[in-house]
Design a protein around this nucleic acid. Structure first.
Length: 197
DNA sequence: TTCGTGATAGAG
DNA sequence: TCTATCACGAAG
């Protein structure tokens, strides 16, 4: 299980290093293939920027705590609180499922493996993450934690997805050419451009 | 490309 | 109270 010290670091390197780690969630397991970093201080896209409750959460919890919230009236989002020199969150955006597929298929209503956890909302649905998990310590329960990366995977960096502020920060990390990431568009193959760069 | 859905927060 | 906004996903 990843020790708390793993999360006693800045959000950006922490987000990058979570790629390739395994998320254990009860019977379910998956390799983390996509993350995003959010910085509690200078990042206008971070909840702490506009939500007092998020600032309180950061102040009152230790690193390695789950920060879960409901968005668009539909989706739960799973983040991990990290506190190093800088504080913030790492959003878990996509997993490559490796165990507990049956339950995921049931929860998601699809049996296409690459669509079970290929997005933050999908992942939470597949694993059964809800508001009950908000504030849960992910460094003490072997059924709700991360495992260190088994193999070193290639990591690509780019701008974050789905936000409307601080869009220029290259704080999204993912495994290139992995079909379990969200917004997969054969990113390693040249695709036709229609005038736009 | 559209639209549903509900929690949160700030304004009135 | 009212309204804007939102780290999404699915259907079209």
């Amino acid at each position: 299980m990843l020790p708390r010290s793993f999360f006693e670091r800045d959000p950006v390197p922490c987000a990058r290093d979570l790629i390739g780690c395994e998320l254990i969630w009860g019977e379910a397991r998956g390799i983390v293939v996509e993350t995003e970093a959010y910085d509690a201080e200078d990042d206008a896209a971070c909840h702490t920027f506009s939500r007092p409750s998020a600032r309180t959460f950061v102040a009152k919890h230790q690193p390695g705590t789950a920060y879960v919230y409901f968005n668009y009236g539909v989706h739960w989002m799973l983040n991990v609180l990290v506190k190093g020199n800088r504080q913030g969150f790492v959003l878990i955006r996509a997993l490559e499922p490796v165990a507990g597929l049956e339950a995921m298929i049931l929860a998601r209503g699809t049996n296409i493996p690459t669509q079970l956890c290929s997005g933050p909302g999908k992942l939470a649905r597949a694993l059964g993450v809800t508001g009950d998990d908000h504030g849960r310590d992910l460094c003490s329960d072997p059924q709700r934690c991360f495992l260190a990366a088994g193999a070193s995977l290639p990591v690509a960096v780019g701008p974050r997805i789905g936000i409307s502020r601080a869009m220029d920060f290259p704080w999204r990390f993912h495994v290139p050419a992995n079909r379990h990431v969200s917004h997969f568009r054969s990113q390693d193959r040249p695709r036709p451009s229609h005038g736009r760069s």
